[in-house]
């Protein structure tokens, strides 16, 4: 086992942190000096607390998360997201921290023939090139959506990220407001994500996650959404909706949440609320379909959370 401080020392000396390494090893031109995080005890394991909350260590594998029955009962949307992302081989190795802090999937970023905002250049070749995979909320010079699936249910659950150094911050602060085109997260190269803390949901909450892909489970999602609804006496007492795949960061849909809260738990309410899902969309020439998919993905999750399976 390696100590946390020893690892930070290596990072300060320029090593690249490696958790599962499923993306690091797949990317061209990987630097050779690697600080392996798998051996750091502080980053490992899921700890359930008596109140129903949990601390999920950053190097917990996706497969481990997906197989956690206790989390399945408390946070089903999170476990469902873990179960449906990537492939069994990737899930066996990839980690929660790696999923949250991975680089975006832009094929221009990943192609050594191009430079862009993220690689020291000052333009975005995707904007004038192939970008049907890109954002539908265009609020940055970079148009790559954040690829983390787990960030969506974690954001919906008001999770917090434990950093070292840096203390504990709201999960969304890992990403900032998304306007900075040069980076996919806000951590410095000498900072580590240690764990995420996910609070206990209220009794009786229904939480649903849906991943909308072009064709099947192994595809990167076009849109994903998590909805959490607490229904009491036929009314929606509280609602949280988060989405991914649409913007530079995962987003909360507060307008949808407002339209749900206090309303009867009916399909009509879901229809009305989902209409607000795309209010902020400013699609690119090749991402108009994503607006439509966002609307229907949010609608699907709301209906499932309401128990409407039609």
């Amino acid at each position: 086992m390696t100590g946390l401080d020893q690892t930070l020392e290596a990072l300060r000396a320029g090593a690249l942190p490696r958790a599962g390494g499923t993306d690091l090893l797949a990317r061209p031109h990987t630097p050779q000096v690697i600080a392996d995080l798998r051996d750091v005890a502080e980053l490992a394991g899921i700890h359930h607390l008596p109140d129903g909350s949990a601390r999920i260590g950053a190097t917990t594998t996706i497969a481990h998360l997906a197989a956690d029955d206790r989390l399945l009962s408390t946070h089903p949307a999170l476990v469902l997201a873990a179960r449906t992302l990537a492939t069994p081989q990737i899930r066996a190795t990839a980690t929660v921290g790696g999923n949250l802090l991975q680089r975006n999937r832009c094929p221009y970023l990943r192609n050594p023939a191009f430079t862009c905002h993220q690689t020291g250049g000052d333009g975005c070749p995707a904007r004038t090139g192939w970008h049907s995979w890109a954002v539908a909320i265009d609020h940055s010079a970079c148009i790559a959506p954040h690829p983390s699936s787990l960030a969506v249910p974690l954001l919906a659950h008001d999770a917090r990220a434990e950093l070292h150094p840096g203390g504990t911050i709201p999960l969304i602060d890992l990403y900032g407001d998304g306007t900075d085109p040069t980076r996919d997260h806000q951590l410095t190269s000498e900072q580590l994500l240690i764990a995420v803390h996910i609070p206990a949901p209220p009794e009786g909450e229904r939480a649903v996650h849906q991943r909308t892909t072009p064709h099947g489970s192994t595809d990167w999602p076009l849109v994903e959404a998590t909805a959490r609804l607490l229904i009491t006496s036929g009314n929606i007492a509280s609602a949280t909706v988060a989405i991914g795949g649409i913007a530079r960061t995962p987003q909360r849909l507060t307008a949808v949440e407002t339209a749900l809260t206090g309303q009867p738990a009916t399909t009509e309410t879901a229809n009305t609320a989902a209409a607000h899902a795309t209010a902020d969309c400013t699609p690119l020439p090749q991402t108009r379909h994503k607006t439509h998919l966002l609307h229907h993905t949010v609608l699907d999750t709301l209906r499932k959370a309401l128990g409407d399976t039609s």
């Binding site: 094929p107 990943r110 191009f114 192939w130 064709h215």
Partner: peptide
Amino acid sequence: LLEQRHTDPATGVVMTDSLADYRIPGIAD
């Protein structure tokens, strides 16, 4: 349903140069 090679219009670089970006049928298809 799936397969489409994309090239960058400005440079002619093939963008679909991995099996994540160039999708061929899997068992579920």
